[in-house]
């Protein structure tokens, strides 16, 4: 029960969306995943705190909440970089050169799948298919999609984002 104290003194401070979602919870069945989604939308990841808050409100043990978090690919337990690169590893992208794109990203940014760099500028994730198969191979950088890539085009693209990220970081 000691963990329940966090509910009254949330830290990091509960931002509006997640707070409202918790407030609106009235014992609806099947609300756990939407609550986690709302936490992730608010914080960008699922902080440990949020797991305890959700557990406290729903009465689901924190271990079970954690089990659900780790089961689904969407949930992250670590904050992400400024730019999230989603490498499409769908079938069409795979046969059209996704492995080559992955190597290029590692070469330019030094990131493997699931990693974030030390400065939190970039995160590399993979996604099974973003449904733009006719533009394969494809990557997404935040919400923007880049298709018909080859190693050379990708190197140029990454260098551009690297420069932009550095500038934003400074300014």
């Amino acid at each position: 029960m000691k963990q329940m104290e966090h509910v009254s003194a949330p830290d990091p401070p509960a931002l509006p969306a997640f707070g409202r979602a918790l407030w609106r919870y009235r014992g609806q069945r099947g609300a756990l995943i939407p609550l986690l989604q709302s936490a992730q939308e608010t914080y960008g990841y699922i902080p440990k705190q949020a797991i305890y808050e959700i557990a406290g409100v729903t009465g689901i043990p924190p271990a079970e909440v954690y089990g659900v978090v780790t089961f689904y690919a969407q949930f992250r337990l670590e904050p992400q970089g400024r730019y999230v690169i989603r490498l499409c590893t769908g079938t069409a992208c795979h046969v059209n050169g996704a492995p080559m794109l992955e190597e290029t990203i590692e070469e330019v940014l030094g990131l493997k799948r699931g990693e974030t760099d030390g400065e939190r500028l970039f995160t590399l994730e993979s996604v099974a298919c973003i449904g733009c198969c006719s533009l394969s191979p494809v990557i997404m950088v935040n919400d923007e999609t880049f298709g018909k890539l080859d190693a050379r085009k990708l190197r140029r693209l990454l260098k551009r984002f690297k420069k932009a990220a550095r500038q934003e970081e400074r300014g």
Binding site: T89, H94, A128, C129
Partner: peptide, 8 residues
């Protein structure tokens, strides 16, 4: 929940 890679 269309999850098959290659189907859209």
């Amino acid at each position: 929940d269309e999850g098959d890679p290659g189907a859209f």
